[in-house]
Simulated scan of single mutants.
Amino acid sequence: MNLKGKQKRYLRAQAHDMRPLFQIGKDGLDENWLNQVIDAIDKHELLKVNILQNSLVEEDEAIEYIQTHSQIQVVQKIGRVLVLYKRSSKPQNRKYSSEVAKL
């Protein structure tokens, strides 16, 4: 599902006060890291990822890797911080997706 402008704006506003839950460091991106992000985003639906200064991965590379290897969508990129969204598979964890569907 591709997000519309209003939906992205809503998600960006909700993520504004969040702190990054994950970091991409010098080890870069791998399948294990992505699996952990997928598990966490299924519980939270919306989270932030920080790309550390010592990381060998650029922001655009991280966005491409995340979107091609999962159903996660990158809502926003601010500097070295990415905002990620994916609708939860469990109805009790759908805090944001019900509001996104209305927009």
Rank of each mutant, 00 (worst) to 15 (best):
M1D: 02
M1F: 00
N2K: 12
K6L: 10
Q7C: 01
K8P: 02
K8N: 06
R9A: 14
R9F: 07
L11V: 04
L11W: 10
R12P: 10
R12N: 14
A13C: 05
Q14K: 15
H16E: 15
H16Y: 15
H16N: 15
H16F: 14
D17M: 11
D17T: 10
M18G: 10
M18L: 15
M18Y: 15
R19G: 09
R19F: 13
R19P: 05
L21V: 06
F22Q: 11
I24W: 03
K26A: 14
D27Q: 11
D27F: 10
G28T: 02
D30P: 06
D30C: 04
D30T: 05
E31Q: 14
N32I: 01
N32Q: 12
N32S: 10
L34S: 01
N35Q: 14
Q36L: 00
Q36T: 03
Q36N: 11
I38V: 04
I38D: 05
D39C: 00
A40C: 03
D42C: 08
D42V: 03
H44F: 14
E45T: 07
L46W: 14
L46N: 04
L47F: 12
L47M: 14
V49H: 07
V49N: 07
N50F: 09
N50D: 15
N50A: 15
Q53I: 13
Q53F: 15
N54K: 11
N54F: 14
S55H: 09
S55I: 03
L56F: 14
L56A: 14
L56S: 14
V57K: 01
D60G: 05
D60F: 11
D60H: 11
D60R: 12
D60W: 12
E61Y: 04
E61R: 00
I63F: 01
I63C: 09
Y65R: 04
I66M: 02
I66L: 01
I66N: 02
I66D: 04
Q67T: 04
T68W: 07
H69K: 09
S70H: 05
S70G: 03
S70L: 07
S70W: 09
Q71F: 11
Q71M: 11
I72S: 01
I72K: 03
Q73P: 05
V75I: 07
V75N: 05
V75Y: 04
Q76N: 13
Q76Y: 03
Q76L: 08
K77Q: 15
I78H: 12
I78C: 12
I78D: 15
G79Y: 02
G79D: 13
G79S: 13
R80I: 02
R80F: 08
V81E: 13
V81L: 09
V81M: 12
L82R: 02
L82S: 09
Y85F: 14
K86N: 10
K86V: 01
R87E: 13
R87S: 05
S89K: 07
S89A: 08
S89C: 03
K90C: 07
P91Y: 03
P91A: 06
P91R: 02
P91L: 08
Q92T: 06
N93D: 12
R94T: 01
R94W: 05
R94C: 08
R94D: 06
K95F: 12
Y96Q: 01
S97G: 08
S98H: 02
E99P: 00
E99W: 00
E99T: 00
V100G: 02
V100H: 05
A101L: 00
K102N: 02
K102R: 05
